[in-house]
Nucleic acid binder design. Structure first.
Lengths: 149, 149
DNA sequence: TTAATTGCAAAGGTTTTGCCGCCGC
DNA sequence: GCGGCGGCAAAACCTTTGCAATTAA
């Protein structure tokens, strides 16, 4: 069992350049102590029990901030909106964090062995690999703006 | 270059048990002829050039229908809303198609070698594998309702 | 003919935004 | 004290839904 006390949580927030408030502490602790991958709404409902005056907007802002500084992971919407693809051949996707473009990766498909076939009773029907980073164009722009001269 | 004529497109739609309409043809062709992984809105704008009377709602319904019958892929929202996770260790996610629960897969992380390090100029910062299927509970429910007796 | 599909508009639900007062540092 | 943060409510979006008219089979 991992254990983190309040002091540890505070230190973790500070380490990520975040100002510490009791709302942030509560949100981070709630997320840290579950395996449920909750949505903003679920976290809100949970935290509200201890801090009834907290607002849903704050939860959204805070989670997004946490994600920005790399404190937490965001599981689902890799992109803002649904995107479609007529290419049914199994392939990976390269998703640009900056311009949100998506391109197919022509790297080999992962070996089936990584899939937990019947492990834990979960029946896997499909798998997809998401590779996130910067596309060539955005990469150039970012590097250009970082080293201006 | 792959080539599909109207007849092929029509056949493909029929093969998937779909009624054929101009709108569906146009939408499928638009998607088939691009590598851009467009959103519903983008497809709408494209198709509207040839069929100005088409509605955005139809595009949404049609894409969803295509996805249902396995004619196209849907890239992004693995779940309906954003979900968060304080577990930063690289790991895969098992996403239930039925109840939308998410659990961590404890299968080994993919070998770095599958990642296109600098390939095509794309800079990969993180990778995630999404395994979709049915969780143990939903699996039982589905099987129970399929074979009732 | 009949069931499926379209267009339109309204509704639903999630997430973002703006503004001001307040709090951490 | 200053800049960042929280609360609140409105707004912005994306997507779904209902219904009447139309169309494919």
């Amino acid at each position: 069992m991992e254990g983190k006390n309040d002091k540890d949580f505070i230190a973790t927030l500070r380490d990520h350049g975040l100002q510490v408030t009791y709302q942030r502490l509560a949100i981070y602790q709630a997320l840290y102590n579950t395996k449920e991958h909750p949505s903003a709404e679920v976290i809100y409902q949970h935290v509200k029990k201890r801090f009834p005056m907290i607002s849903l907007g704050t939860v959204y802002k805070t989670l997004e901030r946490f994600y920005e500084v790399g404190l937490i992971e965001k599981v689902s919407p890799i992109t803002e909106v649904a995107r479609y693809d007529a290419n049914l051949g199994a392939h990976h996707h390269l998703v640009c964090l900056q311009c949100h473009s998506i391109q197919d990766a022509d790297t080999p498909i992962i070996d089936q062995k990584i899939v937990p076939q019947e492990k834990s009773g979960f029946q896997v029907l499909r798998q997809q690999v998401i590779l996130q980073g910067y596309c060539p164009e955005c990469r150039r722009n970012i590097e250009a703006s970082r080293a201006p001269k």
